[in-house]
Write a protein that binds this DNA or RNA. Structure first.
Lengths: 246, 246
DNA sequence: GCTCATGTTTCAAATATTGAAACTCCATTT
DNA sequence: AAATGGAGTTTCAATATTTGAAACATGAGC
């Protein structure tokens, strides 16, 4: 139902992940939508303020999304509360810090603090990031109730993004077991060549929150000792956050 | 074009202004939309995560809006920067504090800090708040370039909300002149019976920002001396904000 | 065990969306 | 200076979606 609304949302996700403005042709190609159709969606979205059209004919997310976003009840307080911890971690490690949760079976990025020297993540399929090759995804799967984890893993379409992507269900289950044991997860260029991520699960019981906190950095800056530092700092930050909620 | 996308956005605005969850019947009545149609829009919006359906069959804005909202480029920093000043003012006066700007000819509420004893504003038409009977609207109109102000005033449909609403264009122009002289604007139950608002213009030149800062409170709590206090505190906060940007 | 209010599904009629093609505009090349 | 190519925009008939009246389902209150 209402396929146009769904497509419009796909456009929003694409623009949201893009980082910078995109032009009509690029957007229509990324989404496999006809140029004309894409054009009209964009014009409509601009008209209602969900998208902004710059002078150079590029499109990006608009202020009305900001307005609506700030009206989402309850949980905004939640992120407001976690934000300072993320900022501090970001300044400390000087890499990008992410917070995500599972929402309706998919990864939802709640908050991101970009380090000044962060590199742009690639504009993905516009909609959802994969569970099987992101550190955040693995961490979240490691803390869900066992039957829910199984259900979600059964639904994963193990799409391959790089040669390192885990595409085998059995191997992936082993990986999740390992994450459970270690208390952290990694993504070593499994989603994008050159990008390494480390995550720890964040489970705020009192708010029924199942999420994860991650650091993402160019692989070239993450040697074994840096990786170890990141893991320790993530765990420390996680504990501080948990403390602030108890 | 894409009327379904537009209607979906109307639903979002209604839910955003509602404060609390709304049920299907109420939403369809407020928007003058068929119950069936409304139902399907809501289901679609829930499916994409822009709306959340609670157990008691009420709908409210969903987390995906939060996610997208936090990805709106540039200006989020902007509001992050103003937020502390608004929080301080809110704690000081113990009433709700609002920040809005003009966007594509309409009022866009960027940020709201609700005092603990705030009363719920009524869920308006779901989309846009009127320029002619809100303190914020008047303040913004008082600082725009003269020809733009004229153009906007010419487009206002002077809808009446209460007996005090100014519905005469000439009188309204006089009111704007008064606001220019005084440096603040008021809404004395012109939009909603029982609700008084006071606003000051906020013009951040360096960011090409034309907006306003307001306090809204139940009329019964705003006597002449309180009103005077509010005006002074709004002006002081405005100056602090301007200072932080220079 | 009714009754009413609310939410949900069905289906044909009414309407909006789609994409190929054509057109415009602007920058670059010949 | 004309020709080429690339990007954005408009047109229009074919197609697919949306719409709302009516019927159905569910559950709370009487």
């Amino acid at each position: 139902m209402s396929s146009s609304v769904k497509k419009a949302v796909t456009v929003l996700h694409l623009l949201g992940n893009a980082g910078e403005g995109m032009n009509l042709t690029t957007i229509s190609k990324e989404l496999n939508m006809d140029k004309t159709t894409t054009f009209r969606y964009l014009e409509t979205l601009v008209e209602v303020g969900l998208v902004e059209k710059k002078d150079n004919n590029t499109y990006c997310l608009g202020m009305v999304l900001f307005e609506l976003g700030s009206k989402v009840p309850v949980k905004q307080l939640f992120i407001t509360k976690i934000d300072p911890f993320m900022k501090r971690l970001c300044e400390d490690v000087n890499e990008t810090v992410n917070l995500a949760q599972l929402y309706q079976g998919r990864l939802l990025y709640l908050h991101k603090i970009e380090s000044k020297r962060s590199l742009q993540m690639r504009a993905t399929l516009g909609n959802q990031l994969p569970l099987n090759c992101t550190a955040i995804g693995k961490s979240i799967l490691s803390i869900l109730p066992a039957d829910e984890t199984r259900k979600i893993i059964d639904n994963i379409k193990f799409q391959s993004f790089t040669p390192s992507t885990i595409t085998n269900k059995t191997k992936f289950k082993e990986e999740i077991t390992r994450v459970k044991t270690n208390g952290y997860s990694t993504d070593l260029e499994e989603f994008e060549i050159g990008l390494t991520c480390i995550a720890v699960p964040l489970n705020i019981m009192s708010h029924d929150f199942y999420g994860a906190l991650s650091i993402s950095a160019p692989t070239m800056r993450v040697n074994a000792s840096v990786m170890d530092q990141f893991i320790q700092k993530l765990k420390a930050t996680r504990d501080e956050i948990l403390n602030s909620f108890s």
